[in-house]
């Protein structure tokens, strides 16, 4: 196996032109890739391109309108960021509930996005804040909304040679929360997870509402029917029945489809009553 570690995007693109191997992989923190490989049995790609030293892809910066997160920013750095805690609560909380410290020190936000797991914990927050994913390729860069970038389990719009460089979040003063239900409290992949972004007037009525849920469909999904029902003013009990229109869960080793549907409705209802103070507490 060959290993390369380019120091800049230009070096990375120059490298791509010279490579003839067919099986290659981009390596960030390796926390999704490494458990899948069996190095001692040679079950690894022919070429590994480690992007961790590429300049300028790490860290969180801000301007007046946006917060920009480099693709190589670790989950622990997101957890520790006061900026994220203050303005993007769902992402901050998802980072807090993500794996353990050692994994968070390596796992990157770009890796969570490109791995495109239906259970990825960082994703629901990115969906409800309508994050834009910035890509850099041999032919320049482009930007795609997260919900268009991820197209299936493990599948994205990434073209050969492209990498995710940045995640852009608009600072609109929208609040958000994240909730994760796992089989145990930490180090567990979500049975269901979701993020809610919202604005409320002084009476507690929603002026905006956006919800995205994970582990209940091939990709993260927006709970549009449920949100429409809530915004139309029907009761929480009635609105919650609409959730099934939005999701298409399956049975797997962690839970059955039925369990996921029931669990999602229960934890949603719980959050609406106790965190957002809707209906009877």
């Amino acid at each position: 196996m060959k290993y390369f570690r380019p120091n800049s995007i230009d070096e990375y693109h120059e490298l791509l032109v010279t490579l003839k191997e067919t099986s290659m992989s981009i390596l960030a923190g390796g926390t999704d890739l490494m458990p899948r490989w069996e190095p001692d049995k040679g079950l690894m790609p022919d070429v590994l391109i480690d992007i961790k030293k590429i300049d300028g892809l790490m860290g969180i910066r801000e301007n007046e309108d946006e917060i920009i997160i480099g693709a190589l920013t670790t989950i622990q750095d997101i957890k520790k960021s006061i900026l994220m805690q203050n303005e993007f609560g769902s992402l901050s909380e998802a980072a807090r509930q993500f794996a353990g410290v050692q994994i968070r020190h390596r796992a990157t936000i770009g890796g969570n996005i490109c791995n495109a797991s239906p259970a990825g914990d960082i994703l629901p927050g990115l969906y409800v804040h309508q994050a834009n994913i910035q890509l850099i390729g041999p032919n320049g860069s482009r930007s795609i909304p997260i919900s268009k970038f991820i197209i299936g389990p493990g599948k994205t719009m990434l073209e050969p040679g492209e990498i995710v460089s940045e995640i852009h979040l608009l600072r609109k003063g929208v609040k958000s929360l994240f909730y994760k239900l796992g089989l145990r409290q930490s180090m567990a992949i979500a049975v269901v997870n979701f993020a809610i972004a919202y604005q409320q007037d002084s009476n507690g009525a929603f002026t905006s509402l956006n919800i995205a849920a994970g582990s209940v469909a091939p990709t993260i999904v927006y709970l549009e029917s449920f949100v429409d029902a809530i915004m139309s003013g029907v009761s929480l009990d009635e609105a919650i029945q609409h959730v099934d229109i939005d999701i298409s869960p399956i049975d797997d080793i962690r839970a059955t489809a039925d369990y996921r549907s029931t669990a999602l409705k229960n934890v949603l209802e719980y959050n609406f009553r106790h965190e957002l103070h809707q209906g009877n507490e």
């Binding site: 290993y3 390796g30 480690d50 050692q102």
Partner: peptide, 10 residues
């Protein structure tokens, strides 16, 4: 970090 998830070259 978990050294089982890191390659020596990294």
């Amino acid at each position: 970090v978990n050294s089982c998830l890191i390659l020596a070259v990294e």
